Simulated scan of single mutants.
Amino acid sequence: MKKDIEKRTLLAAELLIRYNSTVRKVAKVLGVSKSTVHNDLTYRLNKINKWLYKQVRAILEKNKQERHIRGGEATKKKYSAKKEQLVSKNSGII
């Protein structure tokens, strides 16, 4: 495996563990796609460092179990913002 890929994989694992982050956030910080980070953390890391892989796996499983909650919160926030815009827009009419 190339050294730059190995470095990126270890950095992604460190970021995920240290900040208890998501794949999406790690990808944004590293400037790569979510698919790349996911492949780094699920396939490559297992070959590089099994101990780190086990820690990352636990965080990824927790994130997977919580994703429906985060999705619901995002949808609620989206429609609350739309409702506030509509109310403020209509309050200028009266």
Rank of each mutant, 00 (worst) to 15 (best):
V23G: 03
D4I: 15
G92Q: 14
Y53P: 01
D4Y: 13
E84D: 11
E6T: 10
A12P: 07
K7A: 08
R24Y: 06
S33R: 06
Y43E: 06
S80E: 15
I17C: 05
L16K: 00
K2Q: 10
L86G: 05
I94T: 10
G92T: 15
R57S: 01
Y43H: 07
Y53H: 04
N39Q: 12
K76F: 12
Q85M: 15
M1D: 11
V29A: 05
K78A: 09
A27F: 03
S80C: 12
K77A: 15
G92M: 15
H38I: 08
K25M: 02
V32D: 07
Y19R: 06
D4H: 15
E14M: 06
V26P: 01
S33C: 13
D40W: 03
T36M: 13
I93Q: 11
L52D: 12
W51A: 06
T75E: 08
S88Q: 10
K25C: 01
I59E: 06
K83C: 11
S21A: 09
N46M: 12
L60N: 02
Y79P: 13
N63Y: 00
R70S: 09
S88D: 14
K64N: 08
L45G: 05
G31S: 13
G31V: 13
N46H: 11
K7G: 07
Y43T: 02
K2L: 12
I94L: 15
K7W: 03
V26M: 01
E6N: 08
V26Y: 00
G31E: 14
E61S: 04
A27N: 09
S91D: 14
I5Y: 04
N46I: 02
H38K: 09
K50V: 11
R44P: 00
Q55H: 04
L15I: 08
H68R: 08
V29W: 08
V32N: 06
A81R: 14
V37M: 06
V29E: 05
V37F: 01
A81L: 15
A74M: 14
G92V: 15
R44Q: 02
N20A: 04
